[in-house]
C-alpha cells in the first residue's frame, strides 16, 4: 500500500548504555492510512514511545525506513521542515512552558515556524475558543487544572494545521473522568478534521474506544505481536463502553497483552 500516510519498514532501535545494549525496538512494520485513528498498546518498555519519537525524528532509528506521504524521511538525513509541519506531537504531560501564558504556549509553534500571518493567530484563537479555554487564555499554566492544561497541549500541537497527530499517552496522568471527557473531545476533533492520529496508550478501554486499529506490542525486545481491527460503529460515545461488543474487544486485547506478559515470565 503506497497511499499510506505513514509507513514504517523493518524499524530497529538499539540503545547503548554504559553497561549494556538494549534492543528497544526490533523489526517493526506499521502502516497508518490517511485519516486513520490507530493506537499502539503494550506494557512499559515495549518501545511504543520510541516508535513515535522515531516518526517525529526526535530519535534516529538504528536501521529501517520511515515514509511519510510516500517520501522516505529516515534514517539517512534530517527530516525536511515541510514534513515536520505535517506533524503535531502531544506529550505524556501537558508540557506547557510555565513562563508563557496559555495563549502564548498555544502560539509557540507558529512563532518557531515563523507563521506571522494574522490568519494563523485567528486560527489559534479559534482553537482556544473551541476547547473552552477563552477565559483562561491569559492565565499561566500553573493556574489551570490538569485537564485544561492537556487541552491546551492538544491544541498547541494542532495550531500549525498538521495532518498527523502523534500522541504519547496524552491523558495517562489525568483522573478517569477527565480522561473520558478528553477522549470524547478528541474523537470530535478527529471527526471534524480528519487528521491521522497515532495514539500511544496502556489503557485497553481507551484504545478500543478511540481507534480503528490497535497494534499490540511486547517487550524484550520491543516488537509488534498482534494487530487488531476494532469494528465498532461511529460516532462513538460513552454508551458504547457498556455494550457487549465493546467488552468483547477489551477482553480480546487484554488477552493478547496477557499472553505477551506470560511468555515473558516463561
Amino acid at each position: 500500500m503506497s497511499n499510506a500516510k505513514i509507513r514504517l519498514v523493518g524499524l530497529n532501535k538499539l540503545f547503548h548504555t554504559r553497561f549494556q545494549t538494549i534492543e528497544a525496538v526490533r523489526n517493526v512494520d506499521m502502516e497508518f492510512a490517511a485519516g486513520d485513528f490507530v493506537s499502539i498498546i503494550g506494557p512499559s518498555g515495549c518501545g511504543k514511545s520510541t516508535i513515535i519519537r522515531m516518526i517525529d525524528d526526535l530519535i534516529k532509528p538504528t536501521s529501517g525506513e520511515i515514509f511519510i506521504d510516500g517520501r522516505r524521511v529516515s534514517p539517512h538525513r534530517r527530516i525536511p521542515p515541510e514534513v515536520i509541519r505535517k506533524i503535531g506531537f502531544i506529550f505524556q504531560q501537558p508540557n506547557m512552558y510555565p513562563w508563557m501564558t496559555v495563549r502564548e504556549n498555544v502560539m509557540l509553534p507558529l512563532r518557531v515556524f515563523g507563521l506571522r500571518d494574522p490568519e494563523w493567530a485567528r486560527h489559534a484563537d479559534a482553537l482556544i475558543e473551541m476547547t473552552g479555554l477563552r477565559e483562561q487564555r491569559h492565565a499561566y499554566p500553573t493556574e489551570l487544572s490538569g485537564g485544561s492544561m492537556q487541552r491546551a497541549g492538544v491544541i498547541r500541537a494542532m495550531v500549525h494545521k498538521p495532518d498527523i497527530l502523534l500522541m504519547d499517552e496524552p491523558f495517562g496522568a489525568l483522573d478517569e473522568m477527565t480522561r473520558e471527557q478528553l477522549n470524547l473531545e478528541l474523537l470530535d476533533i478527529w471527526r471534524a478534521t480528519g487528521k491521522t492520529i497515532v495514539f500511544i496508550t496502556h489503557s485497553v478501554q481507551e484504545a478500543v474506544l478511540l481507534s480503528n486499529r490497535v497494534y499490540v506490542m511486547g517487550t524484550n525486545p520491543g516488537r509488534v505481536v498482534d494487530e487488531i481491527a476494532v469494528d465498532l460503529p461511529r460516532p462513538r460515545n460513552l454508551k458504547l463502553i457498556v455494550s457487549d461488543r465493546f467488552a468483547g474487544y477489551c477482553e480480546l486485547l487484554t488477552g493478547r497483552i496477557g499472553q505477551v506478559e506470560l511468555s515473558q515470565i516463561k
Partner: peptide, 26 residues
C-alpha cells in the same frame, strides 16, 4: 521534555535558547 518540544518543532539553537533554555534557567 521541555527540550523535546523544541526538538519536535525543529527549532533552531537560537530559538531553543530564547523560548526554552533561558526562561527555564532564569
Amino acid at each position: 521534555l521541555k527540550l523535546e518540544l523544541m526538538g519536535s518543532l525543529r527549532a533552531t539553537r537560537v530559538q531553543t535558547f530564547r523560548h526554552c533554555i533561558l526562561p527555564a534557567s532564569l
